[in-house]
Amino acid sequence: MANIKSAKKRILVNETKAARNKAIKSKVKTYVKKVESAVANNDAEAAAVALREATVEINKAGSKGVYHKNTCSRKISRLSKAVNKIS
């Protein structure tokens, strides 16, 4: 356990940031699952709509520093590829 005041503060700040990152990652995963389920059902319209929503959420996560920009690009690319296959 930390004894120094600044170390105690770092622990609190890190917990706050970790909770925020976890919430954002969870949100992204939910949107990704929506796209994947639409692709699995061969529903091109629903998949396209879900892809647009997922892209926005993934880019937001990237701009907030939760994901690296290349990770965001890779996720979007893979989803786009899957949606384009069923179209």
Results as ranks from 00 to 15, higher is better:
L12R: 15
V13W: 03
K60Q: 09
A23E: 07
A7V: 13
V83F: 11
T30W: 01
R78V: 00
S80T: 15
H68Y: 04
V35W: 11
A19D: 14
G62F: 04
T30P: 00
A23D: 13
K60Y: 07
A46N: 12
A19K: 02
K27C: 03
R78D: 13
E45D: 14
R10E: 15
V32K: 04
A2Q: 00
S77T: 10
A82S: 15
R78A: 01
I11Y: 00
A23L: 04
N84Y: 09
A7C: 02
Y31P: 01
K69G: 06
S63N: 15
K33H: 04
R78G: 06
K22A: 13
A38Y: 11
K8V: 05
I76S: 10
K60F: 04
N3H: 08
E15Q: 15
A7M: 03
I4V: 14
S37L: 10
K75A: 02
A40S: 14
R52C: 02
R10H: 07
L12G: 04
Y31M: 09
K33T: 13
M1Y: 10
T71A: 13
K64L: 13
E45H: 03
V28W: 04
H68G: 14
N3K: 06
A19C: 00
K8Q: 15
N59C: 03
A23K: 04
E15G: 02
K75W: 01
C72P: 08
E57G: 01
I11W: 00
K27R: 08
A7Q: 01
K85D: 13
G65R: 04
K8Y: 03
A61L: 09
R74Y: 04
N14G: 01
A46Y: 04
V56N: 14
I58F: 02
I76A: 09
V13P: 06
E15C: 01
A7S: 10
R10V: 07
A19P: 00
A44R: 07
K64G: 01
A40R: 14
R74S: 13
K17T: 04
A61I: 03
A19E: 10
I76N: 12
V66F: 07
V35T: 03
V39D: 11
A61E: 08
N42H: 12
A2W: 00
E57L: 08
V83Q: 14
M1Q: 09
V66N: 08
N21V: 03
L51W: 06
K22P: 02
E53D: 14
